[in-house]
Design a protein around this nucleic acid. Sequence first.
DNA 1: CTGGGGAGGGGGCCC
DNA 2: TGGGCCCCCTCCCCA
Length: 585
Amino acid sequence: METAMRQPLPRLRLTVPMPIKTGKVAMSPGEDGLIGIPFPEHSNELLSHLNDQRRTGLLCDLTLTSRGARYPTHRSVMAAVSLYFRRLFGAEEGGGEGGGGFSVCQLDCVAPDALDALLEFAYTATLTIPSSGMRDVLRGAQLLGIQCVADACRDILGETAEAEGETAEEQRVQQAVSERLVESAVAKGSRRKTNKKRLKRVGPVHITSSPLNPPPISPTSHPSPASDCLRSQPSTQPPSPESEELYLRAGQNGDPRVGREPGSGATLNGGLLHWAQERPRIAHPPPVQPLSEKLSEEDEMEGLGDDVTLMGSSSTPTSAADGGAASSMAGGGRKRKSQTPQQCPVCQKIIHGAGKLPRHMRTHTGEKPFQCPDCGVRFTRNDKLKIHMRKHTGERPYPCPHCPARFLHSYDLKNHLSLHSGARPFECPLCHKAFAREDHLQRHRKGHSCLELRTRRPRRGPDLLEDVRGDDGRREPALPMPAHASVFHPRTVLDGGVGAGTGPPLLFAGDIERERSLAFHALAQLGPQRLANYPELFLRGLEIRSGLEAEGEDPGRTCSPALQRGRWADEMEEEMGEEEAEDGE
DNA sequence: CTGGGGAGGGGGCCC
DNA sequence: TGGGCCCCCTCCCCA
């Protein structure tokens, strides 16, 4: 690590090993020939550039002041190095405004020299301090929640935390203080997002240096002297670390349950773990290593389980498992059940299947640990690489029983077989054009060809479907485009047709029944699997078809999409027949 | 516009 | 419980 010395001799220099990403090759166990290219110097260079920016004031979005001295810096860096700022900015930006916040932070309680040294450390991983100022730096590091520096200072001073008067409990409290300070600042400065959800989400991050440790009690469960202190501050001021110190002292007599595990682990490892635990909340973490190597599954679950609960995934049919995982994390004695499903902290998607979340996470990080040794193409998944390798080996494990054709993918064979059979099971509900492949049908739906056909027979509903094939005659479109959309978003039509009282006015208020028929026909054309994908729609359709108001009535009818599809198809045929008869009159 | 191939991603099953 | 393997679906690209 480059050492950016500003003041040379009488100073003591401590180079603390930064948590540099190891050059560990990102390779799955047993995976031959996969190369992860490490850039060990990247973090050093990055930090060096940031330091240059700090010195020139470039992109500085935060100014720290101490007794008149001003230190331009970067919020992100300070948040990365300091628990205090991490809590401050993390909670603040949780409001979603992103930009605003404290541009000037007054830290008179930290001596200017100490603050300077701590900033130097933040940007260089090197602590450069006058030996006489060791205690000031220690104090500043404690107040700002830079644990590794505090530990190093203590080591040099030959003091243990206890000898210095800082008990283990005190260290724990120190962690809690930062959170409470920020919590208070957010609650006071911007009331907009002080919901429990946010506070709880912040919670697990600081909890413990070990993901296996039980999380602490929610900070909101304790009255905070620091918070009280903060209340007297102008809302435009950031929480002062001095008030943190106040609480720290109070914490000596305070609740010993608060905080995290102290001690040796709370140095850089602690910092790493904090970082690691926060990472899944970052929209796009830098793709360096497979997540599975950075986060143990326990890490992920510790964070995710909480989120799962908070995100209200109870709407999913698997909420019971979620609740089990979450409750186990809350430290209750209940045994954690299966960890599936898990909720992606980035996209909130529920991922089913044990061990599938790391795989899913790579779709966000972009990391592709599996590389083809022949052509260098990288993949996110081992099994995808395996399939890809068939191109090089010539292996085509899916032979067609009717012809010499062989295929790489089972699905290709499936598609191919439909050619032999001539089956075109995927039919457009509007124009009745049939396709051998479902995705081709979908592409057809998204295109305009179907729409053109659809608009040729405006008023007529199902009978249009019969005539449209081979009908080249141009007719004046009476149904505008949304009619097409309504078929594929039947909910709009269905809701409008039944609820009627609320929502936007129907586009085809005078032709609801026909639109319904059209929608039902479209639904009937959907395969059972498609219907299963839209249970709400399914139920809604049943409700309308049967004229029932209660969706829960006769749930047995809803359990078999295939059966119901058959019913609907039959009923549609009948309806069509009736309407044709009517139209014929 | 359509058919076909390749790849990305999710879920199920099994070890 | 995580990961391997497989199937399936979907999207994109190309001819």
